[in-house]
């Protein structure tokens, strides 16, 4: 069943991209509606997950352009991730929690295409080739976008941590 197999993945992608839990729920429903409407167009020789993620990516970026989420703030990091067992490891330092928080909030400064590339690579753990297929872009462009996104996040992390340390 499609819902069982893919809803969690689609929802998490939507949440990581949009940063708002409610928005992500609405977006997940929109994506599944689109999936039901265009399932007849699916080419059985292609990878279904990649096809679904392409559909999700197109919808998320379209909505982003229409609503301009970058102007909105993202949910507080602790709001949902704290209850999801992020503190499960006692060894995990307060510092790494802080980094996660900064990076999560830092996503709002990334453009839609760069944000999507970083999410697919670093959170979802996709290979560059898969991301190129999902985003319908050349491999080199994907690699360059991922690097630019990481660089932006690294700079944000550096700035916030230096401020935090009073440097």
């Amino acid at each position: 069943m499609l819902v069982n197999a893919y809803s969690k993945r689609v929802f998490n992608l939507a949440y990581q991209f949009a940063g708002s839990y409610e928005e992500a729920e609405d977006l997940t429903q929109d994506i599944f509606l689109k999936l039901y409407n265009s399932i007849t167009k699916y080419d059985f020789e292609k990878n279904f997950t990649a096809w679904l993620l392409t559909l999700a990516r197109n919808h998320l970026i379209d909505q982003y352009r229409k609503t301009k989420w970058e102007k909105k703030s993202r949910d507080e990091f602790d709001e949902h991730y704290l209850s999801a067992g992020i503190n499960s490891s006692p060894e995990e330092s307060v510092l790494s929690q802080e980094s996660k928080k900064i990076v999560w909030e830092g996503f709002k400064y990334l453009s839609s295409e760069i944000r999507m590339a970083v999410i697919l690579r670093d959170i979802q753990g996709k290979k560059y080739e898969e991301i190129a297929e999902i985003m319908e872009l050349p491999l080199g462009t994907v690699k360059s976008r991922v690097n630019r996104g990481r660089l932006q996040l690294a700079k944000i992390l550096k700035e916030k941590k230096e401020k935090g340390n009073g440097m």
Binding site: V3, T28, Y81, A84, S96, D122, I123, K161
Partner: peptide
């Protein structure tokens, strides 16, 4: 810092979806 950002993202947990959303999707 880039490595730190990469590790932070890689260890971000996957959220469970609400029962309400599952019902709506069905």
């Amino acid at each position: 810092f880039m490595e730190e950002a990469r590790v932070s993202l890689a260890t971000l947990p996957e959220l469970e979806i609400s029962e309400d959303l599952t019902k709506k999707l069905y």
